[in-house]
Amino acid sequence: MKPASFVYVRPGSRSEIVAALAEHGADGKVLAGGQSLVAAMNFRLARPGVIIDINRAGDLDYLRPSGDVLAIGALTRHAAFHKPPVEGPLGALLAKVVRHIAHYPIRQRGTFTGSLAHADPASEWCLVAATLGAEMVIANNNGERTCPAAEFFRGTFTTAVGEQDLLAEVRLPMLGAGWRSGFHEFSRRAGDFALAMSLAALKLENGVITAARLGVGGVSDRAIRLSKLEQELVGKPPSKALFQDVAASAQAGIRPTADIHGSSEYRSDLIRAVVGRALTEAAA
């Protein structure tokens, strides 16, 4: 239970990190909060040759609302969302979801961006990013590019972030007036990874749903945005029957993964429950 040796470098800024990544290539690994990486290193599941510690790059520690997006820098810890980081529906949504991520001390170190780069299928932040259609800013020695969530997640622990890339920033759409959200997660104990979870955001105008975002996580190799079902919600007033229908369609459309924590059949039942509850909470 001790990590293998590695060379330790500690760049002081975003540009120094990008240079270090270019220099060390396939040997180099970004160390953010360490709440997934160091555990994997202790088990020797990960044996990086060079650790590039980004914790002293102060220029990556920010939460910046600008226009219709909230920009989240790579050093923003989960705990920064314990209180709504911005006014309005997005801030409320983030503060609601963060309580389900691991535990209080782990949230003091783990980062929002690190969760996305790690891409655990049961990560709450990955579900948020996929459902809301986040935009990722990926930087390397050649400059930076943006990548939409739909192209970012490639499977379990796999994303568009390459060996020499830094996931520098994540941009979430600021949900404007009229939006409200619901989140429901099922796990066996407080702080455990989700066996299934769902995030719903609804825009309600004059009692009618005029826009919707709906996603499910923890049941597949990545978070799933249910775009078709979003369309089924639009134009209708929220009702128990509508939400039951949509939840049943979500269940019918996904064949969940099975593991030691739950069979595919069990997770399938959970999908209907969590989707129904997330939608109900969003409309409440």
């Binding site: 239970m1 330790y8 500690r10 360490g34 709440q35 160091v38 555990a39 202790n42 088990f43 650790i51 510690d53 914790n55 705990a79 535990h103 209080y104 001390p105 782990i106 003091q108 170190r109």
Partner: peptide
């Protein structure tokens, strides 16, 4: 030694953290 039990919790700059998931150099 993988962040689950909390026996190793210490304060770093006032914040409770898992000392098994941090390197001393950090």
């Amino acid at each position: 030694e993988h962040g689950v039990c909390g026996a190793c919790t210490v304060l770093v700059d006032g914040k409770p953290v898992r000392s098994c998931l941090m390197f001393a150099v950090q």
